[in-house]
Amino acid sequence: MKKFLNTADTYLTDALAGFAAAHPELSVNLESGVVTRARGAVAGKVGLVSGGGSGHEPLHTGFVGEGMLDAACPGEIFTSPVPDQATEAVRAADSGEGTVLVVKNYTGDVMNFEMAAETLGDEGLQVETVLVDDDVAVEDSTFTAGRRGTGATLLVEKIAGGSAARGDALAEVAEAGRRVNAASRSFAVALTACTTPSAGRPGFDLPEDEIEVGVGIHGEPGRRREKLRSAGEIVSDMVDAVLDDRPLESGSEAIVVVNGLGGTPLSELYLVYGEVAALLEERGITIVRNAVGDYVTSLDMAGCSITICEAQEDFLPLWDAPVNTPGLRWGV
């Protein structure tokens, strides 16, 4: 395993300590991993909290700050946080207006956050959960744990964050998040496996001429293995998968995220974006906003995901609203 680390066991805390040192505007509990805004909950504002396994940086810790999350609770690598972390994060985020909890749809995440929500409910705090399940590589049926939450999380957290920041009520913020999720679909491919510090070697072996198609963000193998083909061909299949699941008519507007999985350089992501843009143009879909970069990663995995979100009317002002976080910053 080739990584900048001291020991596999301290990887997470060491990285978090560096994150804390780099961002004095945030407050980081190195014991629990919970990250909050240094000034605490914002009076009169609905809280927005997210969390999940670590290894997806900048998600979620890097999205704490003005216009986005109030707190994040990162678990161990690829392991959902425990209920205690989630309760700590929500308590820190809650100013009395209630809190929206953004949860990616994984069995572990759902169960742990549910337990936290129960505890918080017992304490009299209002919590609304927004479940993100955008990954069309997984069929949403009784034969699976349901679609996974992946790239759309960026959109949900930004747009719900904008809704909370402008003073919307708990139900409205949650509704904004849910509508973004419902409007979004994603699909990812991996060129290489990723290596968790504790495993010390790649999660699967992938020959030089093969890729994993339909992967998630936890280093698991994808739906199938294919020969490496040209970017144009790969992207065309990805876009088809996304739009087959949730078709967009000619004339629609979309927000598109081309998201790197951690080991793919920006130039390749732009190349992928170029292919997406051409394909959507052919279909008469206008991309009104885009984000190209590493947002929801899978440690050092080479690969990318494509998220297409139908840009419903009210999404754009909330996407454009000021945001000041380590991972996303504009307008302030």
Binding site: S198, G203, F204, E220
Partner: peptide, 16 residues
């Protein structure tokens, strides 16, 4: 346990 989980999941069951 980690290796078994890596084959069909995310590889963390052993450390968990």
């Amino acid at each position: 346990l980690g290796e078994l989980d890596a084959a069909v999941g995310d590889g963390d069951h052993g450390t968990n």
